[in-house]
Write a protein that binds this DNA or RNA. Structure first.
Length: 257
DNA sequence: GAACGGATTTTCT
DNA sequence: GAAAATCCGTTCC
């Protein structure tokens, strides 16, 4: 084995190797179930965090109404049109990042959205990123998880990367990782093969979460019974803002709000 | 335990 | 100008 491979080896992955680019050079619906059990690693100056993938979703390109590529190429989705085995990171809902892995060949804008995983390395660092410093919830005054009630605000390790935006926060994935090649050992962000492949019989399928279009296709995949899988939420239209702000403050001198 | 509303900004119509 | 591949705390069964 090359020396560099041992130097970059992940503690929890003694015998596994990086996924080759050919792995991703297939339709996303084929790649998505095969990614379950594989390990996403992000190495930063702070340290290394690794998650074993437990849930993902396939997005086809121009033919999929739920895909970001459905309406053609834009500055945001450009990476999806590039070569397979690269990360497509996008920002959504004004505050969250989500990470995809690009599939097929160049020009086919398909990808797999990574939805959930179990942290198997760097849990302390992941927890610090999600909940603040290791002192516990609220220790640094951050709003993430507060002790507002006596129960149910205790962070759980199972929740560290359970959900697409949570996983990005645990792994410190943001715009800087958009376009990263996950198939080379020199990349801080990379994906390793599963130590023990997940049998097809252990993979469940269902509709994708939160999408309004093409809600009938079962392109969400997860490891059956795994606790580190996000809760399914059907698409729900967001209601209009309660305060239209059509007028300014009261005329008579009452204090706003 | 389900349902709801707020936060917040990029992206495209 | 509205919707969006979300998360979190609160409220109401």
């Amino acid at each position: 084995m090359p020396l560099i491979a041992s130097l970059l080896r992940v503690p929890s992955l003694p015998e596994t190797e990086l996924l080759p680019r050919e792995f991703f050079a297939r339709p996303a619906v084929e790649v998505a179930p095969d990614l379950l059990g594989c390990v996403l690693v992000h190495q930063t100056a702070e340290g290394l965090v690794a998650v074993r993938l437990t849930e993902d979703e396939a997005y086809a390109g121009a033919s999929d109404p739920a895909s970001h590529a459905f309406r053609g190429r834009t500055a945001r989705n450009a990476v999806m049109y590039g070569p397979p085995g690269h990360a497509y990171v996008y920002f959504t809902y004004g505050m969250h990042f989500c990470v995809n892995l690009v599939c097929q060949g160049e020009g086919d804008a398909s990808a797999v959205l990574l939805r959930s995983g179990l942290v198997i390395d760097g849990a302390a660092l992941a927890s610090a990123r999600r909940y603040g410093t290791a002192g516990g919830p609220g220790a640094d005054g951050r709003a993430g998880v507060r002790r507002s009630t006596a129960r149910s605000t205790v962070p759980r390790e199972i929740d560290l990367a359970r959900g697409p935006a949570r996983m990005c926060e645990a792994l410190a994935i943001d715009r800087a990782q958009n376009g990263s090649d996950v198939c080379v050992a020199a990349s801080p962000l990379r994906v390793y093969a599963a130590q023990k492949p997940v049998p097809g019989a252990d993979v469940s399928t269902g509709p994708r979460v939160g999408v309004s279009r093409a809600a009938d296709v079962a392109w969400r995949f997860w490891i059956t019974g795994d606790p580190a899988v996000s809760v399914y939420r059907a698409y729900a239209p967001r209601r209009a803002r309660a305060k239209p702000v059509t007028t300014r403050g009261p005329e008579g001198g009452t204090i706003p709000q």
